[in-house]
Simulated scan of single mutants.
Amino acid sequence: MSKVDVVTVGESMVLFQPITDNSLNYAPLFMKSLAGAESNVAITLARLQKKVRWISKLGKDPFGDFILSTLAGEGIDVSRVKREVHKNTAICFKENKGYGDPNVYYYRKNSAASLFSQEDVKEDWFENALHLHVTGITPALGENTVEFIREVMVFARKQGLSISFDPNLRRKLWTEEKAKEVLLSLIPLCDIFMPGLEEAEFLLGNQSVENYGKQFIEMGPKIVALKLGEQGSKGFYKDQIIESSAYKVNRIVDTVGAGDAFAAGLLSVLLEEENLASHEGILRSLHHALRRANILGALATQYKGDWDGAPNLEEILLIENEKQIPSR
């Protein structure tokens, strides 16, 4: 059996958004896609020629069929996904009025994925796999999902996988007190931690960027990649700080999914095993990883879908080398 570069675990939803920029109140026509932080990362990694396995639960319904077929069409292994006959696949609506960040309305309570518990974790999820990527969304989904995601991370570590964790704070899903407690408790279980600036402030209070990186490293991760929006990003490894400037774009269409694109870009470089064999290799890889992550994060703001416009490996290499992508 061939190796799997990345396993990711989480919920995907069917996404509806008006065809034209419009309020949901009056939009007559919608386009259908899928949304979910983990599947966004999975699709982008697959387009960058990484082998990805996506783990989830879906309803035994047409929406679940749509999500499975879409991800399988992107070359992602969905063979471990479980279907729940008596639960629904989650859905969400995105409203973009043409100014500011879009509004997103979630309908995921009591969804199939919210039923995840420790007993669901299976050894074959991690078979032949090198790395696990998880987010702070999954533990907020249901009664037992905090223990579930912790068990996923602990089990993966026992199986020899490295682990990345994006806090992906969703204030609508739980109280701020619970979110802070849980997210902080999961940081020591990961090797690569990738918060945004707002999330760092939420977890540690108002501090300097350098202090955020230092304190997160002290919690246990090997690498911290801090997303700084228009200021680019900073990587922290041991006592080293690596700065990477933002990839400039002329306009912002939709910011949803940018953090997931950043995560995929970062992992696509860091998981090249030969680059991580030494201290110097990690530093060299981290420079490149942050640059690619910044590019992919910026490109994700250029289209409405969460992942639809993600480039393939050939395209991202041309951009990295400052060459024009040929028109088709």
Rank of each mutant, 00 (worst) to 15 (best):
F236H: 00
F66N: 08
N88P: 06
Q49E: 12
P311R: 01
E119L: 12
I187G: 03
F116G: 09
P167W: 15
T70G: 00
S12M: 13
C92H: 14
G257S: 12
E151V: 14
A310G: 11
W125Q: 03
S268E: 00
M1P: 03
N96D: 05
G297P: 01
K234E: 15
E181I: 12
A263N: 09
E280D: 05
G10N: 10
E11W: 10
L132S: 12
A298N: 02
A264Q: 02
P102D: 15
L58D: 10
K57N: 07
S233V: 04
L58E: 15
L34R: 11
L169E: 14
G229A: 03
V81I: 06
G229S: 12
E243T: 06
L197P: 00
G73A: 11
A293E: 11
V52H: 03
L228H: 08
A298D: 00
M1L: 04
D124H: 13
G73S: 11
A258D: 08
N88I: 04
R53F: 04
K180Q: 04
P221G: 02
G229R: 12
L266H: 14
K323Q: 05
K32Q: 08
L283A: 12
V253R: 05
G305T: 11
K248R: 12
K87G: 01
G257K: 02
E273D: 10
F66V: 08
L313G: 10
V134H: 08
L189P: 01
T145A: 09
Y212H: 14
G281P: 04
Q49I: 04
P195F: 08
R284M: 11
Q17R: 11
K172P: 11
N206M: 09
K158T: 07
K122R: 08
S164N: 02
S278A: 13
N144P: 09
K227G: 13
I316F: 00
E177R: 07
G64A: 14
E322T: 11
A300Y: 04
I217C: 01
E314V: 04
A300C: 14
P221L: 13
L299Q: 00
R47V: 09
I19G: 02
A225N: 02
A225P: 01
Q49C: 07
K97S: 14
V154C: 11
E199S: 08
D120Q: 10
